[in-house]
Nucleic acid binder design. Sequence first.
DNA 1: TCGCCTTTGAAGTAA
DNA 2: TTACTTCAAAGGCGA
Length: 392
Amino acid sequence: MPQLSSGGGDDLGANDEMISFKDEGEQEEKIPENAFTERDLADLKSSLVNESEINQSPNTAQAVRRGQQGEHRVFQDKHREHLDGVSKQQDGGMYKSPAYPGYPFLMLPEPYLPNNSVSPSSNKVSVVQQSHGMHALTSLLPYSNDHFSPSPPHLPTDMSQKTGVHRHQSQDLSGYYSLPPGGVGQITPSMSWFPHSLMLGPSGVHPTGIPHPAIVPSSGKQEHDQYDRGMYMKPQVEVKREKEPKKPVIKKPLNAFMLYMKEMRAKVIAECTLKESAAINQILGRRWHALTREEQAKYYELARKERQLHMQLYPTWSARDNYGKKKRRKREKQQDSNTDPGSPKKCRARFGLNQQTDWCGPCRCVPDVRPFSVQPGCCRPIKPPRCFSHLI
DNA sequence: TCGCCTTTGAAGTAA
DNA sequence: TTACTTCAAAGGCGA
């Protein structure tokens, strides 16, 4: 299996820390989602109501999470080990024997599945559809075989012009995303759900003429709108955009957790009747940690392919390109204005979870145990976080 | 109208 | 190399 020249260490899972969910309260076995749901709902609703109270009371659940951090690396190593195994298995023929039932790619229209893959129609596993009617993983679909040809004719000739940027052209990706000959131009009616506006309009179209949801106009909130809702945008809207051409922004490929969120968000919303994303994301964060290694691995693998495809399509793109696209956060501005150069910074980050005795009072007292989060009065003069997770 | 919230992970920057 | 920052999605909410 070809690895990106960059290596990046992002083989399947993340290189850096991955919080272990295996601990006293949460054993390795998968926790039934339904078991979460009611508790999630109750907790979150309760916490939403009693937010201020929550922030003042450390809780045992948070302490449990502290303990989890300790086992983190052990799990990480094992996890990587497992992922390597998965990778090797897939090397011999990606998806010939899907390691993960219900693997998101099974939602792909059949013509876009590898020859030997299981037909989606034969798969009984239900995958939650996106809130906008698009599966989270359909962002991969616009890619075509052409993108993986050794010398893609559509690729800009300056793909290597960007200083220091050269992206490996993985050739056997085509095996992952076997598409009908002819590429995008011959996208079949099975992709009728695919946005025609994206196919036709200049907005959201890769310079090569190939549409990709990662390309959006560069204008604040519209980025989001275009990215997803744009899938269903009427051509009329596109016409307006044509009149005001904006330089398209190529968005970052989604990481494993983001893919998971996209897939599961609708389900959580349905189960919990919650709409506030901040709360939903906390639930999803918990569920993410509750996933088995195998379940997480499929998202890591998927994210890796996303990145590979992204690199194939946009070889000169860098995450740096999008830096500064968003306006600077108020919190950061505030931090700048209040920062005392001589004051100790981010004691949680400095001393880590294993040296909590070195933490300042606020950091020790506040239930939030994320290693790099900071508390008001100590590391960063930020607004206290809305704590939905004190009961988690 | 737009930034914040909240999550994890990838990638970038700075020291 | 380490520490830290930014951005990716989402939608309600507040300024």
